[in-house]
Computed example of a mutant assay.
Amino acid sequence: MSLLNVNDVSYSYDGIVNVLLDVSFTVEEGAIVGLVGPNGSGKSTLIRNVFDLVALQSGSIQIGGHGHDRPEAKQLAMYLSSNDYLPEFLTAREYISMMGKLFHLDVDHDQALDLFRKFSMEGRYDDLIEDYSHGMRKKTQLVSSLVMSRPLTVVDETLNGIDLEALHLAEKEFRAIRSEGRSVLLCTHDFSVLERLADRILFLDLGHVVYDAPTKDLVDEHGSVASMVFDYLETAQR
C-alpha cells in the first residue's frame, strides 16, 4: 500500500526557473527509497513540497491517503533537514518533548536516553543544544525521529557529519523501521549507504525523474549506484 503518493508535481520559482517538471513517484509502506541527484536537481524543493513548506503549484501529493496539507497527513510524516538548526536554548529533553507535543505523543524519555547512550551521547540529554557539536546535533535529529516513530520519515542529508559508528547504528535503526512497516525517504550523496539500505532509487536531474527502479536492478545494470549516476551525468553533458 502506498504511504506517499506524488503525482505530476511541477514547481518553478517566480514562474521562471522550473525546478520540478511532472514528478511522480510513490513510497510504499515498509520501504526505504533513496533519493539522489546532483545539486540543483530539485530534491530539496521536492521535499519542501511534500511537507507543504512551499505552496503546491500543480499536481497532487498525498500522505496516508490524505492531502499533504491536511493536519492528518502532517501527523504521519517527519522531516529531518540537511542543516543542524535546532533551538539552542533548549536541552535535548526539552526539544524532544516539544516534538512530542507537535505530534500529540507522550514521549518515551527512557527510549531517548537509551538512544543517546547508543549514539555515544550518554549524560548529554539534559545539556543545552548550544553546547552540542555539529555531529551531536545531527544525532539528536535522528534520535528525535526514532522516538516520534512516524509512519514516514524523510531524511535530507541528515547523515552527513555523523561518525561511522553512528552511521552504522542509523542504518540498523532504518532497517528496523522498515521491518515494522514504516517507511523512509532517504536523500543522500552516500551511494554506498543506499546500496546497503534502499529498496528503490529515485534519481532526479533538472527536475525530471531519470530513474525510478529497484536498487538491485540498477546495480546489476550499472555495477553500482555511483556508476549509474556518473554515467548518466557524463552522457547528459555531451
Rank of each mutant, 00 (worst) to 15 (best):
S144A: 15
E221F: 11
V54N: 07
S183E: 02
K138Q: 15
S10N: 07
D190R: 11
S192E: 07
T91E: 10
L80F: 00
S224T: 00
L164P: 01
L142M: 10
D131M: 12
K101S: 14
M98A: 15
L233A: 09
Y125G: 06
V154R: 04
N5K: 05
V225Q: 06
S224H: 06
A112G: 04
A176F: 04
G67C: 11
V9C: 12
S192F: 08
G59T: 06
L206D: 15
D69V: 08
Q111P: 03
Q57W: 12
L194N: 14
L152C: 04
I63W: 05
Q57C: 13
D114N: 02
S145H: 13
E157H: 03
D69M: 10
H66Y: 15
G223R: 04
S149P: 08
V33E: 08
N83C: 09
S97R: 14
K43D: 03
K172F: 03
G135V: 09
G64N: 05
E94R: 10
V27Y: 07
H104N: 12
A55V: 01
L90T: 06
M98F: 15
S82I: 00
G64T: 00
A92I: 04
H222A: 04
K172L: 08
E221P: 05
S227T: 01
D190T: 08
S81H: 02
D190Y: 10
M78A: 13
I63Y: 04
R137N: 09
Y85V: 15
L3F: 00
V36I: 15
V154G: 02
R175G: 07
V219Y: 07
Y79P: 12
V143H: 00
S81L: 06
F116L: 04
A77D: 07
S192G: 07
E28V: 00
T188F: 12
